[in-house]
Design a protein around this nucleic acid. Structure first.
Lengths: 245, 245
DNA sequence: CGGCCCGTTGAGAAGCATCAAATGATGTGG
DNA sequence: CCACATCATTTGATGCTTCTCAACGGGCCG
């Protein structure tokens, strides 16, 4: 079925915050696109490139990043399946961040024109895309405050809470989530060195907050983790049913 | 003349990144609005409030902020005259940050409906507003990287460079800019304590980068300041003519 | 089986926070 | 116009969080 409806992850994600008529749903699933498999570590675009179109992440995970002059990397956001890509870059003259794959991923590429045709024909879809972009920016602001205001333990705890909440339905069981990040990448996302990330994770395991395997992470004490990370899911702008946990 | 064209600061700002027909310019200046004087320190809206409409900052300066649970404040952005307000919050159920005035300010309030009417009638204006929102998000990402990756000196230097570049035309002379922030606010914007901001500024004065008066700041060595703050104005997405300095 | 990335551990240093208090500016009311 | 309250800036001493540098062990993949 998914083979015939490759854009279903997009529709699923949009439905969390918007509702569509049957006609609109059909139009979303029928967006002209070119699906492509992305190798781990490949760039979809780089800081400074000219935007060539939009995308939808069908499977896998990607991250946005910028580099400082000293070569250090800051991860700005993690994209999960269903996320729209590059919408926040519009048709500007140049991208202001890079988009790289974290794992093997499937991406559907959509031309600027195809997207424009869609939103002109369906204002309600335009509104839904606009809403997703706003939420995206909201998540960025939340990350900002975390890095600026929380301790190492708080930053790591917050990111764990966010990814758990965003994966939600896709969770393996009630408390174990996919964990796509290495400790080095977690450091690049939280503004910490890998060494300190390691020590922070050890402390969190020692105090019974989490346990972690290779590519998975188990939340042992959600209340304590949420508390440590000062996590309040309001910034995700999810329906109450999903946000409550 | 400004008395008859109160929204002129908006048009001036939009023209830096977009071009408009005479008809479009007229439509922009004719947006139905209610102008209002804002007292220093007053809130235009608070985190969690329901968005009531949009705004244009006609004069003065505002800042966006979020609070961490421990009460510490993070300033997310500084708004200068001509900036659009709350566009990035759309018609979501709740604001995810607070908007407070830094000085006495004049703001034109615009209803959601009036803005919707405008962008439906003039797609080119919709595009221009979309572009401003994108740039806004781009500035947010740049701040993020600064706070996460630069030293105290670098963060302060970068913010000075940005405000100088954004004020640009409004600069008093070639190197002196309006400086609306106290040292405490500068700390809230850069993720530093006021004490450390003070010491950082002293070091920058001692090394001949800047000199500062009460509400003004003079850049003595632009090259060194740009270097210290790793400042590259690309993220402002300004026309080359303005970005080059 | 070997190389390589990832995770782990240790010791020492640096940058920034914290706490406390003094000095200097600004605006207000008598 | 001066006295005073308030806010912003400055200074000093101390400590903690996190970084840096260096090395070692373990699991995964070719």
């Amino acid at each position: 079925m998914d083979a015939f409806q490759p854009l279903m992850p997009l529709l699923d994600k949009l439905r969390r915050r918007s509702t569509f008529s049957a006609e609109e749903s059909d139009a979303l699933l029928a967006i002209p696109h070119r699906a492509s498999a992305i190798q781990p570590g490949a760039y979809l675009f780089r800081d400074g490139d000219v935007p060539q179109g939009y995308g939808v992440l069908l499977a896998g995970s990607l991250y946005r990043q910028k580099f400082a002059r000293d070569g250090s990397r800051q991860i700005l956001a993690v994209h999960l399946a269903g996320d729209l890509l590059g919408l926040d870059q519009g048709t500007l003259a140049a991208h202001d961040y890079s988009l790289q794959s974290l794992s093997r991923a499937d991406v559907a590429f959509i031309s600027h024109q195809a997207m424009l045709d869609l939103v002109v024909a369906f204002p309600n879809i335009a509104q839904a895309l606009w809403r997703e972009t706003i939420v995206d920016a909201s998540i960025g602001r939340e990350w900002f405050v975390n890095i600026a205001r929380l301790s190492a333990r708080g930053r790591v705890a917050h990111l764990i809470c966010e990814l758990a909440t965003r994966q939600d339905a896709a969770m393996l069981d009630d408390s174990t989530i996919d964990w796509p990040l290495t400790q080095e990448q977690l450091g690049d996302a939280t503004g910490l060195t890998p060494v300190h990330v390691n020590r922070t994770l050890q402390a969190m395991r020692a105090t019974g907050l989490i346990s972690s395997q290779r590519h998975a992470l188990t939340i042992l004490d959600w209340a304590a983790l949420r508390d440590a990370g000062d996590f309040n899911p309001a910034y995700l702008h999810l329906p109450i049913a999903i946000a409550a946990r």
